[in-house]
Amino acid sequence: MKIAGSGLKKIAGLAGPFVGLILVITIFSLMPEVSDRFLNLANIKSVATQSVIVALCALGMTLIIVSGGIDLSAASNLALSCVLVAYAINLGVPPLLAALVGVAAGGIVGFLNGFLITRLRLVPFIVTLGMMGIARGLAKWVARNQKIDAPLSWLNELMVRTPKPSWLLVSPGIWLMVLFSLVMAVLLRKTVFGRHAFAVGSNELTARLCGVWTDRVKVAVYTISGLLCGLAGVMEFSRLTVGDPTVAMGLELDIIAAVVIGGGSLSGGEGSILGTLVGVFIMAFLRNGCTMMGWPNYFQEIIIGAIIIAAVTLDRLRHRQE
């Protein structure tokens, strides 16, 4: 009885974002102008492919937000990685190694975030705000303020809509997104590290009282998130086929929005991978639907803004009922 009750509660907790997603999909499916194109497989595949980059970053951001932090440098980190991959390939580095360079660079930026936050005792907002500028600047420096062209390689097939070995069904990027979602969900829910991350976010003082190495947890959290941003940078390079230092400007806010729409609390201690993915897809389907309808860009922005506010308000109400 008890377990069934708690299971129901968990589903109810996720219901908010899910209802939002279903609502968005339903509304566009009912629009006569796009109903035939919106809910077909090709479009869904395309939305999913477009979501890969935001989703990878949002997975890491979920971990950070759960632990009570924030990362404003995620998008700049992604751009730096994207540029470095192109740069490395141009130097003649094999594609796999170039991709690893991108991921590692993301990890280093993330580690620096965590290191500075714990050593200087500064709030994450400030440190990552600074890092946002630093990483973006580095990206532009490496790229000499322009796009870096790179010869095509198999790296550029990671984000195609129709994958090369057709048995893959969807692009390798989507499979990576699924894989890392599973890994992160397990990490958050099934490991001591995940439990400690929740504890630090819920009440850092208590975590310390209980012998949690709070600083180490934080550094690990930012490093993992940085690695995921680096991977997202590789995906971005794959999609663009060039290293563009100005890519993903302002994307960090979309990433944070996805986590928050998915039930993450900016005061820490709450959030889930499934919720975040739902948040990512709500925004992706909205963009996609609006574009199909031929609605202007600003319309999308207004709707997404309204949805963020509505999602958090609903979340509040749900908590008050508890």
Binding site: F198, A199, S202, N203, L205, T206, A207, L209, G269, E270
Partner: peptide, 9 residues
């Protein structure tokens, strides 16, 4: 409340 317990957990 403040330190002893993570009351939201």
């Amino acid at each position: 409340q403040l330190e002893g317990l993570a009351v939201r957990m």
